[in-house]
């Protein structure tokens, strides 16, 4: 059996019906564990005090904000190349979640930035790139909302996602060139020297896994909704013409 079997909406519905519930539960457990562990049972950082606890929300949401866009890029490509409707609908379903993640990353970053850098907002490359990413999400969702015919909307938003990805990457390098930042480097690199210490690392890992699972659960649920909405649309059209 090939992976593409899931592109059949009926098969997709049957399989995801069993997956959505458990992933919600598992995501809930992981996020609750990670956040409680992080919030109550990790020490304060010697320089940053208790604000270091914001990392358990900031890093996972920022990771998801980028990864959701990449997932949308992949599903858009699948739609453009193989014309599987489920793929296009999954991209549509993912965008609002991506926007929420970007907002959380920006918000927690601002709240963290105020005591640490003395400002809610700085035109730092990382912050600026996220703001631009936020604008890309908005444009993408607005284009989906504006077009009535579902296939046209899927095609045009996929093209926008492709072109947008190139420009988002370009903007990332442009803002790097434009301003040197306040933001620290990667928190999670394989380089042990650069990495944050183990005490923070395990609850953070739980939160990241939880956010990923939460995204999977949400995107499947929303894709199912989109498939149902599409079927509902087809039935109403048939009723009207009958």
């Amino acid at each position: 059996m090939s992976f593409w079997e899931y592109a059949n909406p009926r098969r997709f519905m049957a399989v995801t019906d069993r997956v959505v519930g458990p992933s919600f539960v598992l995501a809930g457990v992981l996020i609750t564990t990670g956040l409680i562990w992080g919030f109550f049972f990790t020490p304060d950082d010697f320089r940053q005090g208790s604000t270091v606890k914001i990392i358990y929300l900031h890093v996972p949401s920022a990771m998801m904000a980028i990864n959701i866009w990449i997932m949308m890029l992949v599903t858009s490509l699948v739609w453009l190349i193989r014309r599987h409707h489920v793929s296009a609908l999954a991209a549509k379903a993912a965008a609002p979640i991506g926007v929420t993640m970007t907002l959380i990353a920006l918000f927690t970053g601002a709240v963290w930035g105020q005591p640490m850098w003395g400002t809610y907002w700085a035109w730092d490359p990382r912050l600026t790139s996220f703001l631009i990413l936020f604008l890309f999400y908005l444009g993408y969702m607005a284009l989906w909302a504006a077009i009535e015919d579902p296939d046209t909307a899927a095609d045009l938003t996929s093209i926008l996602c492709l072109v947008g990805s190139v420009f988002a990457l370009l903007s990332r390098y442009a803002v790097n060139f434009w301003n040197q930042g306040l933001h620290q480097g990667a928190s999670l690199s394989l380089d042990k020297e650069e990495n944050i210490s183990d005490v923070f690392w395990f609850p953070l890992l739980a939160c990241i896994a939880g956010f990923i699972l939460l995204f999977i659960a949400l995107v499947l649920l929303r894709t199912r909704t989109e498939i149902r909405a599409r079927r509902l649309h087809a039935i109403t059209l048939r009723e009207r013409s009958a």
């Binding site: 631009i132 604008l135 890309f136 444009g139 072109v163 420009f167 903007s171």
Partner: peptide
Amino acid sequence: SLLVLPLYVP
């Protein structure tokens, strides 16, 4: 404008 302006950034 919403679609094009972010593309103008670089």
